[in-house]
């Protein structure tokens, strides 16, 4: 899923206070699961904004709505009636959702309420970790199902750097060294020979380096 974090309240307040009315839009998919921008987070944020406005005797109308997915045209259709009532929209979706809202409402100012952080997993309740960088050419088959692109601070493809110590990354001692994990797993699976193979230079053109990406499925387009 896409993991995000809410922007600091002070930053959101300074955004919202530029306007007399604002629509806080939550997103019901990824950011709901990671407790950053779902219905409850939208309500909490709206409550804080209302309180702050009242404390500073500032007139601020707040509308709240959470849609199933902000990254799909059909779901953001539901925002139309409320959007007409406000000066600006605060999107609690990932960057993709916030941008589709902006595209949908060309005359509205759209603000992001979240910082989109990574593609990751829920390790435990309340703990999320990065697992994928969306590089466009998956090589997990060569690395025992552990991605050195997303999980090594240096994207190293051919083994750990000199800073790997006791299984931990030199950049953050709380982070596992991806190559230590790969090494252990391949050994366990009896695939140690994979470690000896030099993984060739990566074609980054399928990654962000090739420019914004697009997927087209002719069998699905209408």
């Amino acid at each position: 899923m896409i993991v995000a974090e809410q922007k600091p309240i002070a930053e959101i307040i300074s955004i919202a206070f530029k306007h007399k009315s604002i629509l806080v839009v939550g997103c019901g998919t990824c950011v709901t699961v990671c407790f950053a921008g779902g219905e409850k987070e939208g309500k909490t944020l709206s409550s804080l904004l209302r309180m702050k406005a009242q404390m500073e005797q500032k007139l601020l109308e707040i509308e709240e709505l959470t849609v199933e997915r902000q990254c799909d045209h059909e779901f953001i259709e539901k925002i139309v009636p409320l959007a007409g009532k406000v000066e600006a929209i605060l999107s609690l979706a990932c960057g993709a959702g916030a941008q589709l809202i902006a595209e949908k409402f060309p005359d509205k100012i759209v603000y992001p309420g979240l910082n989109t952080t990574f593609l990751g997993i829920t390790e435990k309740q309340g703990i999320w970790k990065e697992r994928c960088l969306g590089c466009g050419t998956c090589l997990l088959d060569k690395t025992g199902g552990i991605c050195p692109i997303a999980r090594c601070a240096k994207n190293l493809l051919n083994g750990p750097c000199g800073g790997s110590q006791e299984g931990k990354c030199e950049v953050n001692p709380e982070t596992d060294c991806a190559w230590q994990l790969i090494y252990e797993r391949l050994k366990k699976l009896g695939q140690s020979e994979c470690l000896e193979e030099i993984i060739p230079v990566k074609d980054w053109s399928t990654s962000r380096d090739g420019g914004p990406r697009k997927v087209i499925r002719d069998d699905l387009t209408l």
């Binding site: 051919n158 083994g159 790997s164 006791e166 190559w179 230590q180 030099i198």
Partner: peptide, 14 residues
């Protein structure tokens, strides 16, 4: 001296 120790020689051979 870095870890994993046995991998260090594999890496050298690479």
């Amino acid at each position: 001296f870095a870890d994993p120790f046995e991998f260090r020689v594999i890496r050298l051979s690479k």
